[in-house]
Write a protein that binds this DNA or RNA. Structure first.
Length: 745
DNA sequence: AGCACGCCGACT
DNA sequence: GTCGGCGTGCTC
């Protein structure tokens, strides 16, 4: 991860033999350079094919790069060329992956090398394959003569005389790792080279599918079998069995000897999803995300490149793995904004997954209970097919959703649960069932102010309030990580005991519940209490075992969990996501609230969802209460169409940032002056801004935004290239480009 | 991304 | 008088 990697040139030393009249090849390096560099091919190598991974000297170091496709640049004089240092012992990049790199670079206006960097993110995997050693019994060792623990180890090896890893061996023998180590040191065990991991043996049979599932699965299996390019939306409510259906498509790819890639948002918390793959195929899929590091990361990359990984389940970065024979890409929860990478190369993994599938000539499946408007528009245009799963027979059905009008039944002063919601929680707990309260805000209170002088605690690096975290006794900025202790007195007027928390976070809701539902066992789930897959699984088990009565959580609890005893979901502030005028605020609110509501009543008992809102008439609330999703989508689509917004128009953002406010303003003005067209408007496009970004100072950077809004069919990239080339931006400011922005921060 | 070269403050 | 801050520019 991070850092373009120097690698050990397995080949010649770093001297510079003159390159004389030999062939030259373009080599793309994992650096933000404008394009590939030309290199001389040492004598006797032959001409390396495009995609070949090579070690190339650059300045004083040697980098891993890829021989690129297309003609060498040719303008660099022969004498300046340096010879390639070595061919790397790793499979060459495939043509579709090289084309993907070019495609993403062009689309995002990033240097191709910056994109290549994502595809060569595992430097260790590019050098000589790791020789793993395993342990076998030394010759002539007689198990019977050994002490008990050692005898058990010997027995395991006698039973299965293949090389074992030390950890596996200790586990199988039921002894500590020390025993195995001591036996090796004593010469009772010897290390031998272990063969590279064979592909997992996949087996398993399809589960019993409903007729609708079976029909959808058959369509998708056929598409995979025939390698039919094109995308299909697979949608249906929570519990309609979408996963089982796409797993059949995965099974088809595997049966044909091809690989399948399944992209998920934030995989770290989806242990339950991995378990479903295991249940279906009898073996774990290869897993890829940022928390997979070290030897595991290297082995997985290698297994993918060598075709030994039939199924890969991964976060967005898995999109750039070197599959030699990909047969299917699935994007699960395709509406999730986590698929959009914001920093560095700003790409949307869902959209680029469709590109990779297209370039590879294979089918793609987009899966969601609440598809994005982009995807629905593509279905409407006939660009994607659609398979819709109806609600499943025999399931609990969709929960009943009701809005609580806070204007009519407000919470008591200083509290946040309205009487109807509090009553419903009390009844649920009284029946011995579980309830979940959802509030997408960490900490105790989002704002602290002084009752004496009105002072508000603000982050020194960002335009944001500091959030009180009462357990940690700190005021924290959720944008830059700044934290300070809660002071005993107001720093402005010196008054003591005058600081007042304003508004709720999950900690405050938990405090209120402890008071109101004495004796209830409460679990708080937010990124402050749940750190990664392990704790998440722990919480899930506690909830599943009914060791918890009331769950209070942030967005984290909305994701894919199945809690069979949970029958009530209360949304503390259903209006929260609607503030701020974001283009997709309504769509996203609907998706999140629908998803968290889906946690209620999945077993035999009906679920109930209560939404606390000040605006029960808002289209999002009406859609959730009535369940009339189609109408909501139609209204939202009509608004977007009328305004020329995505998915009916295109957007690109230019984000100016600088530690110096004047430089940021100057750069923004320079961009404005250089805007394409007459005064920023032309055939099918218009430039909006500059305006301060919603977080006008973030991590000490002053930020300004300009927005290019264009009709579909306008070559946005061409406009942006010309625009950026024209603009004279002061050095003290930088400009980032975000094509198809998802977030407007 | 590194790494080198190149001009202005606080130390032996 | 030097060590060293990181601003700017180059790497086939």
């Amino acid at each position: 991860m991070g850092g373009a990697s120097t690698i050990d040139p397995a080949g010649p030393d770093g001297k510079r033999p003159a390159a004389s009249g030999r062939s030259r090849v373009p080599v793309l390096l994992p650096l933000p350079l404008a394009g590939p560099y030309d290199y001389a091919v040492p004598e006797g190598w032959g001409v390396p094919q495009p995609g070949t991974l090579v070690a190339a000297p650059l300045g004083g170091r040697v980098l891993a790069g890829a021989v690129w496709h297309g003609a060498p640049d040719g303008t660099v004089p022969e004498a300046k060329l340096r010879p390639l240092a070595a061919l790397l012992p790793a499979p060459a990049m495939t043509a579709p992956l090289m084309r993907l790199v070019d495609w993403v670079a062009r689309w995002t206006l990033s240097p191709p090398g910056a994109v290549l960097r994502m595809a060569l993110s595992v430097p260790a995997a590019l050098s000589e394959p790791r020789v793993r050693s395993g342990l076998v019994l030394a010759e002539g060792v007689e198990p019977a003569t050994l002490p008990k623990a050692r005898a058990r180890v010997a027995a395991v090896l006698a039973e299965a005389p293949v090389p074992w890893s030390a950890a596996d061996l200790a586990r199988a023998a039921g002894v500590g790792p020390g025993v195995v180590k001591a036996m090796r040191d004593a010469g009772l065990l010897v290390a031998v080279a272990m063969p590279e991991g064979a592909p997992p043996r996949l087996g398993g049979a399809p589960p019993a599918l409903s007729p609708a599932q079976a029909e959808a699965a058959a369509v998708l299996r056929a598409a995979v079998a025939e390698r039919r390019p094109g995308a299909t939306l697979l949608d249906g409510v929570t519990g309609s069995g979408k996963t089982e259906v796409y797993l059949e498509a995965v099974a088809e790819a595997v049966a044909r000897g091809r690989q399948a890639l399944v992209l998920l948002p934030e995989i770290a918390l989806s242990a339950q999803v991995i378990a479903r793959f295991r249940a279906r195929f009898g073996a774990d899929p290869h897993v890829w995300h940022s928390e997979v590091t070290g030897a595991r990361r290297r082995d997985t990359w290698r297994a993918v490149a060598e075709g030994r990984a039939p199924i890969v389940v991964g976060a967005r970065s898995a999109l750039f793995l070197p599959f030699p024979d990909l047969g299917l890409i699935v994007v699960d929860e395709e509406h999730e904004t986590a698929f959009k990478q914001e920093d560095g190369v700003a790409y949307h993994a869902r959209d680029m997954a469709l590109v990779r599938a297209h370039l590879t000539g294979i089918p793609a499946i987009l899966v969601s209970a609440t598809p994005s408007l982009e995807t629905l528009a593509n279905v409407a245009r006939g660009r994607h097919a659609r398979l819709h799963l109806p609600e499943r027979h025999g399931s609990a059905g969709m929960p009943r959703v009701e809005a609580i009008d806070l204007r009519a039944t407000p919470p008591p002063r200083g509290q946040f649960l309205s009487p109807p919601l509090a009553a419903a929680i009390g009844e649920t707990l009284g029946r011995g069932e579980q309830a979940l309260l959802f509030l997408n805000r960490r900490g105790f209170a989002p704002l602290t102010l002084c009752r004496g002088c009105g002072h508000r605690f603000q982050c020194p690096n960002c335009t944001a309030w500091l959030v009180e975290h009462r357990y940690a006794r700190r005021l924290e900025c959720h944008h830059c990580g700044h934290a300070e202790p809660v002071p005993p007195a107001c720093p402005e007027c010196g008054a003591e005991g005058s600081l007042t928390p304003v508004g709720p976070g999950v900690e405050r809701i938990a405090a209120e519940c402890r008071e109101r539902f004495a004796g209830a066992r409460i679990a708080e789930m937010s990124s402050d209490t749940v750190h990664g897959a392990h704790t998440a699984a722990h919480y899930a088990a506690m909830i599943g075992n009914r060791e918890v009565d009331l769950v209070i959580g942030t967005q984290l609890v909305a994701k894919g969990w199945h809690f069979p005893h949970l029958t009530l979901v209360g949304v503390v502030d259903a209006d929260l996501g609607l503030a701020g005028g974001d283009l997709r605020a309504a769509e996203r609110s609907f998706q999140v609230l629908h998803q968290v509501g889906g946690r209620a009543g999945r077993a035999d008992r009906p679920g109930r969802v209560l939404l606390q809102t000040w605006a029960p008439g808002h289209p999002v609330m009406r859609a959730l209460v009535s369940g009339d999703v189609d109408r909501f989508v139609a209204e939202e689509m009509a608004e977007r169409r009328a305004g020329g917004w995505p998915p009916f128009g295109r957007l690109a953002a230019l984000i100016v940032s600088s530690p110096d406010q004047a430089a940021a303003d100057e750069a923004a003005e320079a961009l404005r002056r250089a805007a394409p067209g007459a005064d920023g408007a032309g055939e099918g496009f218009r430039v909006l801004g500059p305006a301060p970004a919603p977080l006008s100072i973030l991590r000490g950077q002053h930020r300004r935004r300009l927005l290019l809004k264009a009709a579909r069919g306008v070559d946005v990239q061409a406009l942006l290239w010309a625009w950026l080339a024209r603009a004279e931006v002061p050095r003290a400011a930088r400009v980032d480009v975000d094509v198809d922005p998802v977030s407007f921060l």
